[in-house]
């Protein structure tokens, strides 16, 4: 039987140790990829959060800034399992995106589907496009 060497985890913990010596306090956070799209009446934010439960996500909108933070918790693996490959990152995440003043903050909504968090930020009535009929 060959011996399996759990390099990714070893390498990670080594790296984490080095990071801890940094002058700044590291928060061990990562930035999930995000798309921001503008539609006619709303802004849509889509963030990749695979394996994150919706109860572990916190969304705050304050001073025109949308902040999505939370934690990706490690999944359970059986006790007798040996890790052969570990590329997924489990740790805290936080992203802040600044919007203009035209967001109707009271009507912001969010949903999670297939590992994608979707935040819908409706535009304030005054900021929506209007069609003006020529009489």
């Amino acid at each position: 039987m060959l011996m399996r060497f759990d390099l990714p985890r070893t390498y990670d913990s080594l790296l984490d140790d080095v990071m801890r010596w940094d002058v700044r306090p590291t928060t061990r956070s990562f930035s999930p990829a995000v798309d921001v799209a503008e539609q006619e009446n709303e802004m849509v934010v889509r963030m990749e959060l695979p394996g994150v439960k919706k109860e572990d996500v916190k969304i705050v909108f304050e001073n025109d800034v949308l902040t999505i933070s939370g934690e990706r918790k490690p999944y359970e693996i059986p006790d007798d399992a040996k890790v052969l490959l570990n590329e997924m990152r489990v740790r805290q995440f936080s992203r802040s995106i600044e919007f203009g003043p035209d967001i109707d903050a009271a009507r912001i909504s969010a949903g999670m589907d297939n590992g994608i968090l979707r935040v819908i930020l409706p535009k304030a009535e005054a900021a929506r496009p209007r069609t003006i009929e020529v009489k």
């Binding site: 990749e48 959060l49 695979p50 693996i77 007798d80 399992a81 890790v83 590329e87 297939n114 994608i116």
Partner: peptide, 22 residues
Amino acid sequence: PAVDIAEQKDAYLVKVELPGVR
């Protein structure tokens, strides 16, 4: 995509990160 693989006595468990993939 990021992949995790674990080996058990009787099986391999493979996890692939595929957010937003149908």
